[in-house]
Design a protein around this nucleic acid. Sequence first.
RNA 1: GCGUUUGUAGCUCAGUGGAUAGAGCAACUGACUACGAAUCAGUAGGCCGCAGGUUCAAAUCCUGCCAAGCGCACCA
Length: 583
Amino acid sequence: MLLQTVENTLQQALNAAIAAGELPAEAAVDSIKVEIPRDTTHGDYATNLAMALAKPARKAPRMVAETLIKHLDPALFEKVEIAGPGFINFRLAAPWLHQQIQTLRAADSDYGKHAPVDNHHYLLEFVSANPTGPLHFGHGRWAVLGDCLARLLRIGGYNVDTEFYVNDSGSQIRNLGESVRACYYQVAAEQGQTLTAEQAAHQQAYADEKANPGEKVRFYHGPYVYDLGQQLYHEQQVAALEHNTDFFSTYAKMAILAQQKQELEEFGVTFKTWFLESSLHTEQAVTQALEHMKALGKTYERDGALWFRSTEYGDNNDKVLIKKDGSTTYFANDIAYHWNKLNRGYDRLINIWGADHHGYIPRMSAAVQALGHPPEALEVLLGQMVNLYRAGEKVRMSKRTGDMVTFAEVFEEVGKDATRYLLMQRSADSPVDFDLELAKTQSSENPVFYVQYAHARICSIFRTAANVTRYDTRPWQSADLSVLQAPEERALMIKLLAYPDEVSYAAAVREPHRLTGYAQELASLFHQFYKQCRVLFERPADQEVPAEEVQLSLARLYLADAVRIVLRNLLTDIFGISAPESM
RNA sequence: GCGUUUGUAGCUCAGUGGAUAGAGCAACUGACUACGAAUCAGUAGGCCGCAGGUUCAAAUCCUGCCAAGCGCACCA
């Protein structure tokens, strides 16, 4: 909240200058931008305010800057200077800085958490894989993105729940059931059971397609399908021979769903709700939603179908809700689902979709608006695809053909912490080329270990401190921080205090990847500090450790602990990975 | 054709209209007889896709073009 503090101070100075008649009233602005300069010689914080005001104030930027500085609260800063074309550079006063570090330590695991920023109730929906096969690696990306975003939003002061939407009805589920049924017959035949003509034919059709997959593949051929058939035979023996496709569909989807849930939980991703699409049909929710749309006058009939006037809300053409054959479209089901979410009290819906669904956004947005909600009630975050490589060779990720690397395999190979970190490091906008061999071979130089190492190193310092015999390290919690004067110490403190601002901004723009950058920078500043500033001192047995060194040692322990707190909060609360005490 | 995302160092990618565009990997040179070398210090590497425009100021905003991914169903 440092940025806010500096901005408020500037705003007060501006108001005072206007009140004193030194700047014209036209100079009043409502948003002041303060930033942390890249170049540390430009101060801890800087603003372009004077340059922005130059035109309305009809004065040279440097003149405006001088006027503003005259009215600044002097307690915060030890130096304020005008630089370049009219930047105002601030250097924070050391006592104030030290006081903020103490506030940080007092907050401990609450440091970085924000008070509620609005009164909305957010529902973040992500992954939402079809229960027709194991999760692939692309789902892993959405899982990490969504989970980290949910953590970030909560810490950033948003009231958010998470949900996994299960598309557990429709033709794909039927195809899955047909596939498992065929595999079950195959197992039964292998076990010496006699199949009926229909059963044998069905099993043959499946085997034929597997042997010669054409352009249009109907069945699922992944190894997990056969496994399910086998598993079912072991559980029920011949009993299932009597059952129809629905039985196999239900059996398969429940088994796959349970598997997905378990994988995600092991990966540290949990959902408040697993919402079944089939529950909408049993409750007639689709019908009700469509009746509601009709009553609102948002639909019309044409060519024997029911259409939604999505063009009223900017879509490029109207969309069909009920097909000529009387069945509802996927879109109609989705409207029912979103209506359901809104009716459950969520007035802000955030969906994470793969970039291949972006053409779907205008119609969904139109539907939410037609249901009486503002455009901002639906927010869709698009994630670009993940291309998976193994030793430079592209791995396909198609469920139908069974030629795929599953998420579980990658997770197993690369590990939870590294996989999560590598996936959340990149912005959702950029496609990821993920090479399995590279991820593994580079694992010891993986960026995640750099951050974790800084945390482990601090823990190690405190273990060592307990064994320092030449002076008492125990009173570090009441250390006098005024002895922290080195540039490395200062840079570290400034960075620590930027943490709440980083959280706030990353949450507002829905970009958790920004915090991996912050984590790298903080770890880097700590490693520099560690190299340059000794924390623990020793002397030969016949010499005393000077009092100044003891003081410095205690203050540095205090600072190191503050770094530990922020690193731990980042790693465990936002990244969802471990903060190891040793590695 | 329309829409959308992307184009930044050899590679993978950060970059909130600001000051000399950054990091990691790869390459090269140095640093452990006191706190963890999974580290640090340094060298080298750039028409920020191209061209215009807006601005005191553009990698960032606008327009056009080039290239790549994705999407444009009474499929799900």
